[in-house]
Write a protein that binds this DNA or RNA. Structure first.
Length: 287
DNA sequence: CTAGATCCTCGTCACTCCCG
DNA sequence: CGGGAGTGACGAGGATCTAG
């Protein structure tokens, strides 16, 4: 079984997916298209040759380092595959700032969501099962993988534990409940204030102040309790969304791995078949 | 055994896409 | 057009591995 691995290149910020077997690493973030797992996609590398002609709906991705490489979508239209040649494609005559912005923009070119991809898979599976009951490529493994996405999120996960709340003790003795504010980018004044209660000490950015007269908690006196609640809700939803997204990503990668395995087996079988037919043909040919 | 390296998972932010 | 959903990027922290 191939091991597909996500490598996070911190310096370049690009994420590459690679298998230990036949697929050279392809920078997915640099592509506006994605390998659709629902189709019989074949990845052809410079070193290894995978024959695609035997596949009826074969999508061929040529990664031979040529800029003319294409991705053929199920609908027949061709999309150019951008090859990222480490640096040479990036650096024009841009200032460092512009360049970093440009790089960031390029990184943010989105590929289809996993939900979309898996929906496509589901649809293709339906079409596939209609088309061919023998289903060489519609193996049950992949069907199982796809079906998971229809399960509600709540069925998979326990309710997320809400972020802890800071208990701020004010001089008047009343205790405020303030959600933990965590941010990598504490800007503004930048200083941090320490609060303490019976359970220990807490550090809060200076921007966050407690208005002791009104009892309201606010950033520069404008954060209302409503806003705090909204933020809590948003964070909780995003937390769950991130979990779900990661689950789908894993599912998608598994799906691709299954497909690679299926295609490798098919390829082997076809090579064997070709060999035996050749032998048969040679025997029947009178010299 | 331990320090450093590497991997893995999670939460959050920032951004894009899509729908009402 | 606003807001929610989805997802890449990033950093933190724990787990595991490995050389000394």
């Amino acid at each position: 079984m191939d091991v597909m691995k996500e490598e996070n290149n911190n310096a370049g910020g690009t994420t590459t997916y690679s298998t230990s077997n036949s697929i050279n690493s392809v920078s997915l973030t640099s592509m506006s298209s994605v390998i659709h797992a629902n189709q019989q996609s074949v990845i052809q590398t410079a070193s290894t040759t995978v024959q695609s002609s035997v596949l009826p709906k074969s999508n061929v991705i040529l990664v031979g380092g040529k800029l003319t490489s294409v991705i053929q979508t199920p609908h027949g239209n061709l999309q150019p595959l951008q090859m990222v040649n480490s640096k040479s494609d990036m650096d024009d005559s841009l200032s460092p700032d512009e360049e970093s912005i440009k790089k960031r923009r390029e990184k943010l070119i989105r590929r289809p969501s996993y939900r979309k991809i898996l929906n496509d898979i589901a649809r293709a599976e339906l079409g596939c099962t209609k088309m061919e009951s023998s289903g060489s490529d519609c193996d049950s493994n992949i069907d199982n993988e796809v079906s998971v996405s229809s399960v509600p999120v709540s069925a998979h996960y326990q309710a997320a534990v809400p972020s802890s709340h800071l208990q701020l003790s004010s001089h008047c003795g009343n205790v405020q409940s303030l959600p933990t504010i965590m941010s990598n980018s504490i800007s503004g004044s930048g200083s941090i204030i320490q609060y303490s209660n019976q359970e220990g000490s807490y550090y809060v950015p200076n921007d966050i102040v407690v208005n002791q007269n009104s009892g309201n908690v606010g950033i520069n006196n404008v954060i209302t309790e409503d806003q705090v609640k909204k933020r809590e809700l948003r964070l909780q939803k995003n937390r769950e969304a991130a979990r779900e997204c990661r689950r789908k990503k894993k599912e998608y990668i598994k799906c691709l791995e299954n497909r690679v395995a299926v295609l490798e087996n098919q390829n082997k079988a076809l090579i064997e078949e070709l060999k035996s037919l050749k032998e048969l043909y040679c025997q029947q040919q009178p010299e």
